[in-house]
């Protein structure tokens, strides 16, 4: 888009008035002014808290003196911290992979439903995503209840022994990932469905004429056309999943034996519940470099492909 001064119908009397007028006529200025409310909102609600978190992370436990990177070096020596790093990565990566796979498969199913009934299916499949996660996780909590699990009740007649959904480290990790996948898959599904709809039908026709199999059509037509969407969706979901709080907080509160804590929940435990706000801020900030590296790689790949096209 060319950012040029639009011709002015009214000539300014003075130089300054004229230049102000010209400035106001610029498309970039108008765009900036229109975006200003959002910029202010982001500054107040995102930039300021983020900056304040950085400031807090440089203070000692009593918040009375500057300790630089002291909190971070302290964290590096804690076993529980590395357990949280491991669990956060396990939680986010596993959940994103499964959400992407399920979203991809379901998007294909929905894409192949005749357009008359498709809207109904799309609506129903989006339900897990549109319910506030704290609420739906509460329902899952009851399904997984240690003593009165409805799922265990249903499994019992099949001869399956009671499963400690939130009582054993392995099962508890499985449970929090399962709920995250359940909530997040519809987002992938709808993004992939939009991407699928934008793939030109002619490419499939050409592939069919060339004798491409079902798998070859997916591999050589669908996937390359969806690459950017897949990458962006994965990145977005990775960030959101890494920063998750509500699912783990409601379902396991980080237990048993800290085996499901992720950055957000552990930061809350240490900072708010434990009263060590600087350390809590440091824990929550630790995910920034991890996500920045992931974002840099994914976005670089997208830019590269964009310039190739």
């Amino acid at each position: 888009m060319a950012d040029i001064a639009a011709p002015s119908s009214i000539a300014g009397t003075g130089d300054s008035r004229s230049s102000l007028h010209k400035l106001m006529q610029r498309k970039s200025t108008v765009a900036f002014l229109m975006a200003l409310p959002l910029i202010l909102l982001i500054t107040i609600l995102v930039a300021y808290p983020a900056g304040y978190a950085v400031y807090l992370a440089t203070l000692n436990k009593g918040m009375t003196r500057f300790v630089g990177f002291g909190n971070f070096t302290f964290l590096f020596g804690r076993d529980t911290f590395w357990l949280v790093v491991y669990q956060s990565c396990l939680f986010a990566i596993t959940a994103v992979i499964f959400k992407a796979l399920i979203g991809f498969v379901v998007a294909h199913f929905v894409h192949n439903i005749p357009s008359k009934g498709q809207r109904k299916w799309r609506g129903m499949l989006l339900v897990p995503w549109v319910i506030p996660p704290a609420m739906s996780t509460l329902a899952w909590l009851w399904l997984f209840d240690p003593s009165y699990s409805a799922i265990n009740y249903l499994l019992q007649p099949l001869g399956i022994d009671r499963i400690p959904w939130t009582g054993e480290a392995g099962w508890a990790r499985f449970s929090v990932i399962l709920v995250n996948v359940w909530i997040g898959s519809p987002f992938f599904m709808i993004m992939y469905l939009a991407a699928l709809k934008s793939v030109p039908e002619q490419l499939y026709e050409a592939a069919a004429i060339d004798g491409a199999t079902w798998w070859q059509r997916i591999w050589y037509v669908t996937l390359p056309m969806m690459r950017n969407i897949i990458a962006i969706t994965a990145l977005f979901s990775l960030i959101v999943t890494f920063a998750n709080f509500d699912i783990v907080r409601v379902l396991t509160a980080g237990g048993p034996l800290n085996s499901t804590h992720i950055f957000g929940t552990w930061a809350f435990r240490v900072g708010i519940e434990g009263g060590d706000i600087p350390l809590g801020a440091s824990v929550s900030l630790f995910m920034v470099p991890i996500l920045a590296v992931a974002a840099a790689f994914i976005l670089r790949d997208i830019t590269k492909r964009g310039s190739e096209v």
């Binding site: 003593s147 009165y148 400690p164 959904w165 009582g167 508890a172 237990g255």
Partner: peptide, 20 residues
């Protein structure tokens, strides 16, 4: 109870009130 490591502050109340 085997699942005691997963209990929260509501679990013991439910355990008693349910008659278990």
């Amino acid at each position: 109870p085997e699942d005691a490591p997963a209990w929260d502050d509501a679990s013991n109340n439910k355990w008693l009130v349910s008659g278990k």
